[in-house]
Design a protein around this nucleic acid. Sequence first.
DNA 1: TGAAGTTGGACTAAATCAGTCGTATTTAAT
DNA 2: ATTAAATACGACTGATTTAGTCCAACTTCA
Lengths: 135, 135
Amino acid sequence: MFQLSKRVEYALIAIRHIAMQPNSRMHTTKEIAEKYQISYQLLAKVMQRMAKKGYVVAHHGVNGGYTIARDANTLTISSIIQAVEGKPNVTIIQCEAETPENCIIHGTCTIKNPLVKLQDNINKVFDQLTIMEMV
Amino acid sequence: MFQLSKRVEYALIAIRHIAMQPNSRMHTTKEIAEKYQISYQLLAKVMQRMAKKGYVVAHHGVNGGYTIARDANTLTISSIIQAVEGKPNVTIIQCEAETPENCIIHGTCTIKNPLVKLQDNINKVFDQLTIMEMV
DNA sequence: TGAAGTTGGACTAAATCAGTCGTATTTAAT
DNA sequence: ATTAAATACGACTGATTTAGTCCAACTTCA
């Protein structure tokens, strides 16, 4: 519970790796997967999602790979999670993740308000840590 | 991802319910389950775990039920999660939850240090919110 | 003795997650 | 043109986790 998924871990490892190297150097999925001994296929998907969000730029074909697309200062852990998980945010409570009506105890729920505050505080934590601070 | 389990939700609802009522009033699992329309069996297990941790006191037999055992000010969300999940804490990174050697990328992992800091900040958030603040 | 409680282990079904496979597409080098 | 190296992406499998159920015990009061 409350553990980062492998997808997010791999995304952080990869984007940190790319962000650390001198500008515009190209990095392939294969290179990163081998260096950190992680699943090539899974990392490939993760990279695709980050490319789709515009956090990295994909260069197809021979000598292709990925380069970083944005200032590492503007890339937060929040953004990465959102990109690879596809969900709007880190949502600790069901009724905020989906529509309130989907929550089985909607109507009798007495803990929503305090948990929304908790949620806000957690969001802050994830919004504050940038990739820049990880290199 | 990063959603509270139903166990934790039910625990919070129940302990808040108990904490709200005048002192020493007894509350049965059945009463709480019916009031909030949640699974009796699941709530029963959750209550057992909280009783084992000493957060509530179980009174067996007829006219039994649970009473609160501690000042609601000293009961944090952290404690509740720990009680019902059985894990030492909210651990976002695998290598902190288990032994580092269990992590497949232990040795090549470059994101551990920043994530440990993230972990600390999250812990603070969960340690700060008490049941008292929920009533 | 029976009813109303808690205790707790075993089990099932559904959902999520990690990882794999196969195929298509793009592009640079030859 | 062809080939090799790279990304893109949907479908699938197996393992794990989670929610919830079932059932049999134990405890206590009236």
